[in-house]
Amino acid sequence: MGSITLKQVAKRFGDTEVIPPLDLSIEDGEFVVFVGPSGCGKSTLLRLIAGLEDVSDGVIEIDGKNATDLPPAKRGLAMVFQSYALYPHMSVRKNIAFPLKMAGMDQAAIDAKVNGAAATLNLGDYIDRRPGQLSGGQRQRVAIGRAIVREPSAFLFDEPLSNLDAALRGNMRLEISELHQTLATTMVYVTHDQVEAMTMADKIVVLRAGHIEQVGSPLDLYREPANLFVAGFIGSPAMNIIAGPAAEAYGAPTIGVRPEHMELSHDEGTWRGVVGVSEHLGSDTFLRVDVEGVGTLTARAGGEFPARHGDTVGLTPDPERMHRFDANGLRIAG
């Protein structure tokens, strides 16, 4: 139940190839996140799986059966949209009941399922209100409720949290992760936010211009990014990419050092530079350091590290946790 396989799936709009042929397999029960900058084709890929767009080439298999030409409703998938796409003229109850009503289920069974979903998602207080009277987070929950009552073999999420404020986004992120633990259903989640990808995913698919750059668990991607793009995209703050003589000293045309993998001191260091901006977050301090001949580097220090604009500090990278890339931007193993 709930495995999805893409074989040489491609999508073209006219002459523009949005997604060149790609292969991907999503295992049953996995939480897969498609992540990439805007316009990278991640939403299109999700819509291809959902059946809202026709594939130009290739085969989509759901549960081992060819679903390439099946209409969306027959694929057994449920989708949560970025705009939530609730039906504004129906109450929350009717919104959630809509897919069941369309499936021709009898009223008693519908009521039981809607009440079940309402209990799972704590919708009880506003079950008879209209979407227009709800806050963003409540609408999000209703949209998820509408998806779970269908008991789909997989959930598709299209940037579901991008319209919420930061605090609520953090909460909903947890709730969706918990929902995944409870239901143990396959979830495919599209986002441009690498924090969401890192925190929620079992498996991250990094996309750029329709190409899959790398597939792996969050920590795999963090520890061994396959190329410069993934290296720069995964991790917050972003990895420092250094080219030129400073990199050649470590035996590669380009090296990458994460802010958290550099030793900071006031007296000495491989690279010495002047602090531009220091961000004190309490638990951490992020310093933007201008190093002559290397560039501007971001470094992470402990929360109590005393540094102000204009101070000179020394940075020492940890060669063990340094990433080396060749002239084509691909990772050099070892």
Binding site: P72, A73, A85, L86
Partner: peptide, 15 residues
């Protein structure tokens, strides 16, 4: 009309 609403209805199995 928001096209996502129509798509959502399509996913929900509405003819």
């Amino acid at each position: 009309l928001d096209s996502e609403q129509i798509e959502a209805a399509e996913m929900d199995g509405a003819s």
